[in-house]
Amino acid sequence: MPSPDPDFEKQKKRHWPTLIGIAAVLLLVIVAMLGFGVWDAAPIEEQAAPGPIEEGEG
Rank of each mutant, 00 (worst) to 15 (best):
M1K: 08
F8N: 04
Q11A: 15
M33N: 04
M1F: 09
G35L: 14
G51Q: 05
E54F: 14
I53A: 06
S3Q: 09
P17K: 13
V29A: 15
G37R: 13
P43K: 01
V25I: 15
L26M: 14
E57D: 11
P6T: 07
I30M: 08
T18G: 10
G21I: 00
G56M: 03
F8Y: 12
E57L: 09
P2N: 09
S3K: 06
W39M: 10
L27Q: 00
L26N: 11
K12Q: 13
D40S: 03
A23L: 12
V25R: 08
E46V: 06
W16L: 03
E54W: 08
E46G: 01
E46C: 00
T18Q: 12
D5S: 14
I53N: 06
A24L: 13
I20L: 12
A41N: 09
L34A: 14
I44A: 14
V31I: 15
D7C: 07
G51K: 10
V31T: 04
E55L: 14
F8L: 12
G37P: 03
V29C: 13
V31L: 15
F36C: 07
W39L: 13
W39S: 05
E54G: 04
E55A: 08
V25Y: 05
I20W: 05
V31S: 04
A23R: 03
E45R: 11
Q11D: 12
K13C: 01
G58L: 12
I44V: 11
E55R: 06
G21Q: 05
G51I: 01
K13N: 09
V38P: 00
M33K: 05
P4I: 06
P6W: 04
G58S: 07
P6L: 13
R14K: 14
L34I: 15
R14L: 15
A32S: 07
L27T: 12
G56K: 04
I20Q: 11
E57M: 07
W39A: 10
E57Y: 08
G21P: 00
G37V: 02
P2M: 10
V31D: 01
A42T: 04
L34N: 03
A42S: 01
E45H: 04
R14S: 05
